[in-house]
């Protein structure tokens, strides 16, 4: 398991775990970030990511990306 921020862009990954328990986690779930869901980093700018999850593109900052383990 490694944080999403370390994942190689362009490679398909599977979400293993989302750490923390707060409203943001629930919001992530609504956007499609759930355990076992596929995810791919599309591009990376200074630690901030654009990822593809469930056919949509979502922008995340580094703190958020560090909470998603793949």
């Amino acid at each position: 398991m490694l944080p999403l921020s370390m994942a190689t862009p362009g490679e398909k990954q599977t979400i293993r775990k989302i750490t923390g328990k707060d409203e943001v986690r629930q919001h992530l779930a609504e956007l499609g970030f759930v355990v076992d869901s596929d995810i791919m980093v599309v591009s990376e700018v200074g630690g901030n990511l654009i990822v593809q999850v469930k056919d949509s593109r979502v922008a995340l900052n580094r703190d958020m990306a560090n909470r998603i383990m793949v």
Binding site: L31, I50, R57, A59, N61
Partner: peptide, 12 residues
């Protein structure tokens, strides 16, 4: 406090 973490859908 930190500004809220940035999570935003990017429409095509």
């Amino acid at each position: 406090g930190e500004p809220s973490p940035f999570v935003m859908e990017l429409p095509s």
